[in-house]
Design a protein around this nucleic acid. Structure first.
Lengths: 166, 166
DNA sequence: GCCTGATATTTTGATGTCCAAAGACCTGGA
DNA sequence: TCCAGGTCTTTGGACATCAAAATATCAGGC
């Protein structure tokens, strides 16, 4: 027997019981989103573990794999992945340690550091991508539902000034 | 002019260009969810910063505030908030450092550590909750959309064995 | 009344995120 | 030419999360 109710349903009940009805739906949405985020990241990390990769590092390798010469400036990476420059530095450091990429200097602009895919990194990319795609292909929703979810999330995203700047 | 396109739209294009059409919608949904998560957490953290609280710490105080005597065992806290026991230990340590709660031993079971709200913690709770609720009340969606979002997220959550265990 | 296994918590170590500040390097104007 | 301001990256610090190992305590069976 499940003696404990769903923690999120319980939280919503508490919110309503304390008179915060106007915030209860938003609280529930945010709390559920945080939980789903946790679940999905966990699934992805588990899929990548056999390759010695984390999601953050996979994203960098994947991005480099898309680029012409397999290399991009640090700043560009942070921009595309929408993470802080310091996060890029630390992830790239570990990828370099594992021999999946190397860092080189830009020849014209000495400030710029380029992260460049190594052969080992490139080899890892295909099977790792397949593993992650297996997760993406089965979120537990129908095709239409996935589209609806994307639409709703996009509305929240754009309502907060993301994606489309004037 | 916005020289760069939306990074998520760009990622989707790459996925489709590489023949991963079946995974592209899921990739887009997950990437968008991760981004929205980032945006919402950022908004909440900013709302809580004036109180010297992070979201993780606020959740613990809020949970204690709901309990009868303002105290709960460490394990129970992790269970309700669905976070790792080690996370509870570290957050509670900082809350105690800031005088917002104190740790006591359970009188019957010596293994159990109780976190108990202090007066300062209780005082902080009301305005901090109001600040967070202001974020919850304005996600940029209509009431119906919020409900739809909750439904879809719940389907993902339950499809991954969360909430309703046999 | 004691072991032994189960339970509760903390510690440790690795990762990741962000911010603020420091360090390099570039560029344009005096 | 040279310097001042701007750009790119890294560093150091604070937090948070997870996994696994270490501790401490309880509880049931012989």
């Amino acid at each position: 027997m499940s003696k404990d109710l769903d923690p999120i349903a319980e939280a919503r009940r508490q919110w309503e019981a304390h008179g915060w009805e106007s915030a209860a739906p938003g609280m529930t949405a945010v709390t559920t989103l945080v939980r789903v985020h946790q679940i999905l990241i966990e699934r992805i990390e588990r899929a990548l573990a056999p390759f010695g990769l984390t999601f953050a590092r996979f994203e960098i390798l994947r991005l480099l794999g898309f680029s012409r010469r397999g290399r991009l400036p640090m700043g560009k990476i942070g921009e595309r992945l929408q993470v802080h420059p310091a996060s890029v530095t630390s992830a790239v450091k570990r990828l370099e340690r594992d021999g999946l990429l190397r860092r080189t200097q830009d020849e014209v602009d000495g400030r710029i550091v380029l992260a460049e895919l190594s052969d080992a990194g490139r080899r890892l990319l295909e099977p790792a991508t397949a593993a992650v795609n297996a997760v993406f292909e089965d979120l537990g929703l129908s095709g239409n539902e996935v589209d609806d979810l994307i639409s709703l999330l996009d509305r929240v995203r754009h309502a907060n000034g993301d994606g489309t700047l004037p």
